[in-house]
Amino acid sequence: MLRDGPLREDLMPEVLPPEDLPPRGAPRDAARGEIDRHEARAAWLLSLPTLVLMLLLLVLPCAALVALSLTDAELGVPEMHFLGLDAYLNLLTDRDFIRSFRNTAVYVGLVTPASVVLGLVLALLIEAGTDLRAFFRSVFFLPVVALTVAMASVWQYLMHPSFGPINLMLKLVGLPSVNWLGSSDIVLPALALIGIWQAVGFNMVLFLAGLAGINRDLYAAAEMDGARSAWSRFWTVTWPMLGPTTLFVVTITVINAVKVFETVATLTQGGPAKSSDVLLWTIYQEGFVYLHVGTASAMAVVFIVVLMALLLVQTRILERKVHYT
């Protein structure tokens, strides 16, 4: 439905005066300024709905969050008092919060390396040959699209201490059974196992995309240069070329792992004895179960700061090392 011909001429005076071009200098700048103003007006109109939403859903809530974190507000209690940084100072000595922070760090520390390395291994294995490529890609991707809460329920059954298939298999090979979700030492690794299972497929497709972007000539060049084994070609070409992808995969995995909530809410509710308390679960409990809005807000601010710090590390420090431009 593009119009052309005469209509285009009608438009001309508006865009560029075709005759009597003003002399160099002020009048022409004025015409230019008119166009700029028109463009700016259009831009603001197009962005307006988004700007309103940003104000309502981002700026105001962030401001309110910070404001609430400085008070002793409780849900359902009409009055509140300004406490300054008390809530933050309390967090420093709050054993439950510290435990929750540490648990989250342990969970992230387990999930990230394992799911990144496994994702890379799967991508390399798939890329190494031609048989059943699409099939394997889809199979390993399945957990990504399976509902987390539902799969958590399945894992709960698999990890059931007495009749769960995992323990039955351990018994088959003569190993003692494990109380996966019921023992405070094992519960975090058990949750991490589920997290790894779900993250591997996503990391794999990201690595596959990264591998597809490597110039094939580099492998040929490495071979000509004397890289005989697949091992030395990997370290000469694949690993350095995957630098940006790896950094990105690590960042995404860390951020998703820090936000772990669904499996904890479904399977352990932070238990046993708070040994699987993680940040989001603690914030949720504090804010929506105990209704301590002030404390929960302070925790949420800390949570945002942690995420920002992680992203800052990515963009400012590591990115310089893996981008070769």
Binding site: A43, S47, T50, L51, M54, L57, L58, V59, L60, P61, C62, A64, L65, L68, L75, K259, F261, L280, I283, G287, F288, V293, A296, S297, A300, V301, F303, I304, L307, M308, L311
Partner: peptide, 25 residues
């Protein structure tokens, strides 16, 4: 434009979980 872009970046950094308390209120 830079201010809007800065807001976009801010939004990328703040997950819904963190501001759920004011949103809930």
């Amino acid at each position: 434009r830079e201010i809007v872009l800065a807001l976009v970046i801010l939004g990328l950094l703040v997950p819904i979980h963190a501001i759920s308390i004011p949103l809930y209120a």
